[in-house]
Computed example of a mutant assay.
Amino acid sequence: MTETAESKQSAVDPFRQVERATISDTIVAQIRELVTNGTLKPGDRLPSERDLCKRFAVGRTSVREALKPLITMGLLEGRIGSGTYVAAETGQFRKPLEWGLLGDLSGQDDLVEARHMLETNAAYWAALRAEPDNLTAIETTVQGMAESLRQPEHFQEFDANFHFEIARATQNKILFRLINVIRGQIQTWIGERLTLSSDRTEALAEISLNQHREVLAAIISGDGDAARDAMDRHIQTATRDLRGIAK
């Protein structure tokens, strides 16, 4: 007797009924979205459990159940006596890239090339899509760079935020996350190179500031091609100067 498809299905049914999302699942999705779109940035402190309960209109159990998997994934980190923060790094999803780059010269070359591919096009799309608040945020980072020419650590922080804000201005969440992933390694590489020649730090910062202003001007004018070209010049110049220090 031939076994029918129906009898097979009744024996072991591979299909399961769709379950409704729990309250904690919904909270997880919201927090992940806030991190993904940049509303919550690396290092940001989340509201307290009590405040989250009020904002989500749920009990503490639901909030705690939502935070646990986010911490496990590495998206958030809990600090005893301080609270819950967005991880400074993007957790497990970022680690493989970092491990592949650390101490690997060819990996650094790939990193710089990937940066060029992503950030030149980010500048192009930012020029076409930036909203007024995006332009304000980018301008603020350039102003911060100008005010911290003699403070390398602060200058690099504003520099990194400049590129983050341009990525955000593209209105493309995937591009923003990709640039977020590689930017940490870029900043580490820049910092390492600059420590080898502290006497040139201010001069290089002035060159970088002027080139950032050119990128900003092109984005404000809405000229995508000019923005991409300005970013290309900046990355090429910065890469050449930093590699020159390393020699």
Rank of each mutant, 00 (worst) to 15 (best):
T22A: 09
S208N: 10
F155Y: 09
V86Q: 13
D159H: 09
R150P: 08
L97G: 05
N37C: 07
E165Y: 14
R177S: 02
Q143L: 07
R50P: 01
E113W: 11
V35F: 01
D199Y: 08
P69I: 03
T140H: 09
Q211P: 01
R16Q: 10
R115L: 06
R243H: 10
T72S: 06
P152T: 08
G244H: 07
R177H: 11
Q185I: 02
L128V: 10
R94W: 00
I190C: 06
I219G: 00
I235G: 13
M117K: 13
R243V: 09
R45W: 10
R177L: 12
L76Q: 04
E214C: 04
T26S: 03
I190E: 09
E202T: 14
I80N: 07
I220R: 13
T22W: 04
L149N: 15
L111C: 02
S62D: 09
D109V: 05
Q9K: 13
I23E: 13
R64W: 06
A66E: 01
L102S: 11
P42K: 06
V18F: 15
A5W: 11
S198W: 09
L216Q: 10
R129F: 05
N161Y: 07
E202A: 12
A167V: 12
V86L: 02
A57F: 09
I71E: 00
L34C: 06
D44I: 05
Q143A: 13
N134T: 05
S10A: 15
G83M: 01
I31S: 05
A123S: 14
T188Y: 07
S208L: 05
D51P: 05
F164N: 01
L204R: 06
V112M: 10
G222D: 12
T195P: 01
F176K: 05
T61C: 04
V18R: 15
D109H: 12
D104P: 04
L102A: 08
L97I: 06
Q17S: 08
E3R: 08
T201C: 12
A66C: 09
C53I: 08
E65L: 12
M145P: 00
P69C: 14
H116V: 00
T239S: 10
N161L: 14
P14I: 00
T140E: 12
L101N: 12
S62L: 00
F56C: 07
T84M: 02
L196E: 15
H212C: 03
I186Q: 15
P96H: 06
G43H: 07
Q185E: 14
A122H: 13
Q30V: 00
L194P: 01
S48C: 03
T61W: 02
T188P: 04
R115V: 01
H212I: 01
S82W: 02
T239I: 06
N180P: 06
L46W: 07
I220H: 09
K95N: 10
A5N: 03
G74K: 02
K247C: 09
R213C: 04
C53F: 02
F162Y: 14
Q211R: 06
A122P: 00
R200Q: 14
S198L: 13
L194C: 01
I182H: 05
A87H: 07
E119C: 10
L75P: 01
R16D: 00
M231R: 12
A127Y: 05
E214S: 11
L111K: 01
D51N: 05
A5H: 04
A226D: 02
M145H: 05
C53E: 15
T237L: 10
L75G: 03
F158R: 15
T84L: 11
R177F: 03
D51S: 08
N210E: 12
